[in-house]
Write a protein that binds this DNA or RNA. Structure first.
Lengths: 131, 131
DNA sequence: CAATTGATGTAATAACATTACATTCCAATT
DNA sequence: AATTGGAATGTAATGTTATTACATCAATTG
């Protein structure tokens, strides 16, 4: 998935997220794109839905915000479960993948015949720089 | 922490959650407690804050809802990180603890001098009964 | 060209959560 | 018994996040 294949709105939203140092809410994105012609939340949410589907953006469930994927060139979905640390002071987000954790979670689900959909792993706390 | 020490509002909210087969939103709880005198969201949120603090209730970040803890007699906080499976069809929630996952997450954080606060692990999908 | 599909624009509303401020309750101390 | 300080409560208003509904537009394809 390259930037080429994105629509104008999707490209604008991804651009805003990519240049942000911290996660942004949908409404913050909307405000940043007013000058580009955005008028309503739905324009943002629709673009975000596609970017999430493409694996170019992640949703942080615990803070209702969105971040650009740290490695958009690869297919982030292919890496399996993505986990995050989220600094509550500066907003810095670090993305990581741990196959051991993934295996344990999948094992737990399999043992109970639970069909796994989207999995969320988010650690909120304080990053090294803010400690 | 026994039920004895709860205030009236806290007890009412916990009671509603304890008798529910699935997670409830704060506003659903409010509706269920109108007859008991609840009038405003804040009454629910304040009770929930305390119940969360006591470890009697969990917040499911990915669906903005709350559940009673599966083992309220023990101190759930003491068990470390709590993980959940959440059935998107019937709402059934299963709570579990995995020390391997916990160690991996703590190790990752420690390696980066990230001071861990609250950690969220939620698997959304379909339970055995709904598959 | 008609039909289909995906994207967009706009307005309205729903769902979730907090701020601000006044009041009440209750236990501890005087 | 009165005082007082902290926790809990009541109420209104507002702020924040997300969706529904409906009309339109653009590209593709049969």
């Amino acid at each position: 998935m390259t930037t080429q294949t994105l629509t104008r709105n999707q490209g604008l939203v991804l651009d805003v997220l990519s240049h942000s140092q911290s996660p942004l809410s949908a409404y913050t994105i909307l405000d940043k794109l007013r000058d580009s012609g955005f008028r309503a939340p739905l324009q943002v949410y629709r673009a975000l839905d596609k970017l999430l589907e493409f694996g170019l953006v992640h949703r942080l469930e615990s803070i209702n915000a969105f971040v650009a994927c740290a490695h958009p060139d690869e297919d982030c979905h292919a890496h399996g479960i993505t986990a995050f640390t989220i600094c509550e002071t500066c907003g810095k987000v670090t993305e990581f993948h741990d196959h051991v954790i993934e295996d344990r979670l999948k094992g737990f689900a399999r043992d109970r015949n639970f069909k796994t959909g989207k999995t969320t792993i988010e650690i909120r706390g304080t990053c090294a720089g803010c400690a």
